[in-house]
């Protein structure tokens, strides 16, 4: 049972990250504007982030599902989810009414519902991280795999 829950969580979270990365990869300028709307990234670095972050989402999403660099991918997604929650939280506290730039649905605004979605994914992923045995690891093979 544990095996199927772990694989299910990896499939859903990894799938969402892959899906979310596509629009951002296709149109990095648009993604950069969405990052800029948060008014938190200094020195015009939103463009650099918009050019690199979607690829990180794509590779970690693939890694999580396929079991390639599984631990690295899981930790990266965990850290990204924490950053997304913090980013949206500060924007809500500052009274912004902006698109979240999540990449899942066009025109989706920031809000408590989006934060809740991310918290659910974070909890699920944390559960995967603390499991002593991992399943379906393609590369590298480790002693964690059963």
């Amino acid at each position: 049972m544990n095996k199927y829950i772990q694989l299910g969580i990896r499939l859903i979270v990894g799938g969402l990250f892959i899906y979310a990365s596509i629009d951002k990869i296709v149109d990095p300028s648009e993604f950069a504007k969405q990052i800029n709307n948060y008014h938190i990234i200094p020195f015009g670095l939103e463009n650099a982030i918009a050019l690199i972050l979607p690829w990180l989402e794509l590779f970690t999403g693939i890694g999580l599902i396929m079991g390639i660099y599984l631990e690295g991918s899981t930790i990266w997604i965990f850290l990204l989810l924490i950053s997304f929650i913090a980013l949206m939280g500060q924007a809500i506290l500052r009274g912004y009414n902006i698109e979240c730039g999540c990449g899942l649905k066009e025109g989706q605004m920031i809000g408590l519902a989006k934060i809740f979605e991310n918290v659910i994914m974070l909890i699920a992923l944390y559960w995967v991280i603390i499991q002593p045995k991992k399943y379906f690891i393609i590369f590298p093979k480790t002693e964690l795999e059963e």
């Binding site: 800029n36 015009g44 670095l45 650099a48 050019l51 690829w55 590779f59 970690t60 660099y69 690295g72």
Partner: peptide, 26 residues
């Protein structure tokens, strides 16, 4: 490794785009 791969692919993708995006926003 995952971060490095993302940087390399991001640079390569932006370089080969018809209209590349400047790395620092004006």
């Amino acid at each position: 490794a995952l971060f490095g791969l993302s940087i390399i692919v991001g640079i390569a993708y932006n370089t080969t785009r018809i209209v590349s995006v400047p790395w620092i926003a004006q």
